[in-house]
């Protein structure tokens, strides 16, 4: 089974707010100097499902990532975990692409690879949390899509997807090829092994540009954006502390409940 996993490199979600700035004028996040980008954690879980499928059924895992130097480190990380091959999709024309353009870029690369049974993406990227790219890639490729997938099995030549819903699960059988976006209820990603890291370091990662994947440059980059970001704000948070007492525990609890109700914290 050939699986393509699309990964995105993002600003480390563990960064404390003090480490980056939001420029509300240019509506951009200024990343901290020197701290490397990391692979989107949902994509890591997508890769984990891919690795489990490969361990059970054999096949090959190919990593695709749109981006320059940062993409290479995410692909390297994926290779160290056990992916077979990885390609960085990088071109000056791609700069400033939004989810719609990135989905187009990824779909061009997937068409170039051609021989695949399954495409996996994280449910969303932990930076902007839009969750658009996966479904848009499926739409571009004209293949079925199942989102919020927790488990994938190969069953009688069909792909069986277990999908998480509120208080339950849905199971879909789909003929390959298909695309799934993977939810955080999927298994946690493994840690790389020593030899995995060494092998990933030795591997040359090929970079494909717009010409290599036959992408129409009028559909990518900042000029292809049809949505204009007009505001980007960090929510202001205030903390305060009050001591609430009483003659006894019951009275204190009662006063606490009244105060919380008054503040709108409980109803």
């Amino acid at each position: 089974m050939n699986i393509i996993v699309c990964v995105k490199q993002i600003l480390d979600p563990d960064l404390p707010p003090a480490k980056f700035r939001v420029d509300e004028q240019s509506k951009r996040v200024i990343p901290p100097e020197g701290i490397p980008f990391v692979m989107n954690p949902y994509d890591e879980q997508a890769l984990e499902l891919a690795l489990r499928l490969k361990e059970k059924n054999g096949g090959k895992i190919i990593i695709l990532s749109a981006g320059g130097q940062e993409a290479l480190s995410s692909i390297k990380h994926a290779l160290s975990l056990g992916a077979d091959d990885g390609f960085a999709l990088s071109d000056e024309a791609f700069d400033g692409s939004d989810s719609f353009s990135v989905a187009y870029i990824l779909s061009c690369a997937i068409k170039k690879i051609g021989n695949y049974d399954l495409v996996l993406c994280g449910r969303q990227a932990a930076d902007w949390d839009e969750g658009l790219t996966g479904p848009l890639v499926a739409h571009r490729l004209g293949i079925p899509v199942i989102n919020l997938v927790r488990e994938i099995e190969l069953s009688n030549d069909k792909l069986r997807f277990t999908r998480v819903i509120s208080g339950g699960e849905q199971v879909f059988d789909v003929a390959a090829p298909a695309l799934a976006t993977v939810t955080n209820e999927a298994p946690q990603p493994r840690l790389p092994t020593g030899w995995g890291i060494i092998a990933a370091n030795r591997k040359q990662i090929a970079v494909w540009n717009a010409g290599d994947i036959g992408a129409d440059v009028s559909l990518v980059g900042g000029r292809a954006r049809r949505r204009k970001l007009t505001g980007l704000f960090v929510t202001e948070r205030n903390r305060s502390c009050e001591f609430i007492g009483g003659e006894n525990v019951l009275e204190a609890a009662d006063k606490l409940a009244q105060r919380l109700n008054q503040l709108g914290a409980i109803r």
């Binding site: 840690l191 790389p192 092994t193 020593g194 030899w195 995995g196 890291i197 060494i198």
Partner: peptide
């Protein structure tokens, strides 16, 4: 008696 490598990331190197 000699040191012949390290153990790292679950592997012997």
């Amino acid at each position: 008696g000699r040191i012949s490598g390290i153990r790292a990331g679950g592997d012997e190197l």
